[in-house]
Design a protein around this nucleic acid. Structure first.
Lengths: 234, 234
DNA sequence: GCAAAAGTGTTTTGTCTACACCCATGA
DNA sequence: TCATGGGTGTAGACAAAACACTTTTGC
């Protein structure tokens, strides 16, 4: 939350966004520099108050649009934080959402205006209030969800290489994966469409580009649902 | 939510509890009969408004205490529901919590006073507002969580038999499990302490009682955490 | 021709599945 | 003695883990 007015003594409802991005081999978070008291100078999640006539899930969309210029962001509600006194300005209950965005699609000018910066998830600055805890729970949810739903693709360009995809999983899970096993596993699911093109910016040989095949995934998921069985992607 | 007053035009924050219980071989939900308009005569989740100076997680505890007389209930926050117009009485954002309680520990008199009744999860009555959706998401979370954390024990007495435990998992997952495989798997984790006593109410031979061994589980979980690896219970 | 990343296969190990019979006891 | 639920073992299928070398090509 960045809004500094706390008009009533009643509970106010805010949203805070944990914005994940990925590039190279690093998972990172978009944070904004807090230019006012309290806790001026620290960093915080992007947030805002929920409007009276606004659908809950619209609220983070509006906030993200204002920060990045982007629509169509993958968003998932994480948790409501409501300790009395968590926000020194009054009783604010904050709903957190994590967002997955494709870095380099965001609007640099808007980011600058908000004094926003990307930080590697492994090296975050000090955050205001309970935002550290919010990040932690969002990351946990991202990890769990990634295992069972193909949401990671929202962090990659539409076309991506297998080494890129592997790096992403490694960044999310925080551990190295065996390339051969990774390939075999992810390809065996049949949810990746191999393209003819190669991406040559990372190597001389070039790596084949793939695209996520939503239709194939939906079929896979339906099969699993029919048998009341758990689907694990990786 | 059962409170019928909506004092302001601003967003009000409520909690609704999805109360799971287990007995025999059935997972069930505790619902209350709605005695006033709108939607009088239907059934609803137990709920209430969050108080101005109340810690969020305290709110469902208070609500549950008033309904069942119980403290020390396993509670987990699920999701915030905030469609504009989801509650015809005003803008109410409702936070849902699922609760796991040991049936037969609850206070019958209080339940009667609230016109509360247990319903099998497979055969629920019509619910008010979006409570159906709330139940669905809570059940989904229960299923997912059960796989990776030993929360099911909160639905069983402290001492339980393996057939009981298996029935519980079957009820939660909604499918039959092989007894031999179930036993092998759950025992191999080493998180159950076998007692000398037998429980004879379900069979002539009697089944050994077990107790959840939290210490062993914590050690197991820590090992998994160290290796950044996923822990699956069943 | 060499450095750097992409791509490929096999063996071993362990885990999950499927499946059928004996045991203990109260009635 | 029989009906009922509790308890056990094994073989085969499958999936995961471990592991090393070849390919391509820009420089």
């Amino acid at each position: 939350m960045t809004d500094i007015s706390y008009p009533t003594k009643d509970i106010r409802l805010a949203v805070d966004c944990i914005i994940f991005g990925f590039s190279g081999s690093e998972l990172s978070l978009l944070l904004i520099h807090r230019g006012f008291e309290p806790e001026k100078g620290l960093w915080s999640l992007m947030g805002g108050f929920v409007k009276d006539d606004e659908h809950l899930d619209e609220s983070p969309r509006r906030v993200l649009k204002s920060l990045t210029g982007l629509d169509d962001i993958y968003l998932e509600q994480v948790h409501a934080f409501g300790d009395v006194g968590r926000d020194p300005g009054g009783r604010v209950v904050s709903l957190t959402y994590f967002a997955l965005i494709r870095k380099e699609t965001e609007d640099e000018v808007l980011l600058d205006e908000h004094d926003a910066r990307w930080f590697p998830i492994t090296d975050l600055p000090e955050l205001i209030f309970d935002h550290q805890e919010m990040v932690k729970s969002a990351l946990k949810q991202l990890i769990l969800k990634t295992r069972i739903q193909p949401i990671g693709f929202n962090l990659l360009p539409e076309k991506f290489t297998l080494p890129e995809l592997q790096s992403l999983y490694e960044a999310i899970y925080g551990r190295r994966l065996d390339d051969r096993n990774f390939r075999r596993r992810i390809l065996s699911l049949g949810i990746l469409e191999k393209l003819e093109e190669k991406e040559k910016s990372n190597s001389k040989k070039g790596a084949y580009l793939f695209r996520f095949d939503k239709t194939a995934y939906d079929a896979l998921r339906e099969d699993a649902a029919k048998m009341n069985v758990f689907l694990t992607l990786f």
